[in-house]
């Protein structure tokens, strides 16, 4: 069974048909990159999996969107529980105006966790998993805003990991970072896929080819080509994909 799956997924913003009949399966412990020009629907598609599109007025969704085989748009689904299972990291680091420790502990606390030593263990574990522990272990009480952009982004990843998701959605997680911080995030993605299923939106072709196992090319709301990254970047099946990845688009 696929970890994440969409069957004929359509999404409308009012009259605008943003996603058109997208059927795709993503296996557990893989990294899938979503690529395509701005406005092609890749971020909209990513946000299907934690129901972030619900926050936008006049959104209408048809088709099936499954996580662990469960239709996440069926009635009575607990969206908070879904967002524990499906974490998200955004383009710009968005730490809360709290200490480093409290940023990571936040998700646990709002979900009702009271056990102090459990929270401490989880914070340390998450910071280690996000490759930030060595840099912040002696300043956990300092404000998260004192960290660099790259460190803030890894803090946001630690915050997402703390509530034990099984899927992590990343919307251009390194686009605002310098090359060194980008390399750390990419290395982290490589490590994290051992335990998590990762879907990443990126405009950076080299990043998509470096970090992902599978790549999906979107254009005007349609899934043009989806396959193993090595195939997409060496011998794509469609000329349209080839034109995009080689920069001869349009």
């Amino acid at each position: 069974m696929a970890k994440i799956e969409t069957l004929d997924a359509n999404l409308f913003y009012g009259d605008f048909h943003a996603l058109k009949n997208i059927s795709m399966q993503m296996e557990e412990n893989t990294v899938t990159a979503l690529i395509g020009p701005s406005g092609c629907g890749k971020s909209t598609y990513l946000r299907l999996f934690n129901r972030m599109n619900d926050l936008i007025d006049s959104t209408r969704i048809t088709g099936q969107i499954l996580v662990d085989g469960e239709d996440i748009y069926r009635k009575n689904i607990n969206v908070d529980e879904l967002r524990i299972k499906v974490g998200m990291v955004f383009q710009k680091p968005n730490p809360f105006p709290k200490s480093i420790f409290e940023n990571v502990a936040y998700g646990l606390r709002v979900n009702g966790e009271k056990n102090k030593s459990y929270i401490e263990d989880k914070v340390v574990q998450s910071l280690k998993q996000s490759a930030l522990w060595n840099e912040v272990s002696d300043k956990l009480t300092k404000s998260a805003f004192e960290l660099s952009g790259g460190q803030q982004q890894r803090l946001c990843i630690a915050r997402a990991l703390a509530i034990s998701p099984s899927v992590i959605l990343m919307d251009e997680p390194a686009s605002a970072l310098d090359p060194l911080s980008t390399a750390k995030i990419e290395e982290l993605i490589h490590e994290l896929k051992k335990e998590y299923t990762i879907v990443i939106v990126t405009h950076n072709m080299q990043q998509a080819s470096r970090v992902s196992d599978y790549t999906a090319f979107f254009y005007l709301g349609e899934l043009v080509e989806y396959g193993q990254t090595v195939e997409i970047f060496t011998k794509p099946k469609l000329k349209h994909t080839e034109n995009y990845i080689t920069g001869r688009f349009g």
Partner: peptide
């Protein structure tokens, strides 16, 4: 230039 696909080939 990090060529890919037919450019790389």
């Amino acid at each position: 230039y990090n060529p890919v696909a037919s450019d790389l080939r």
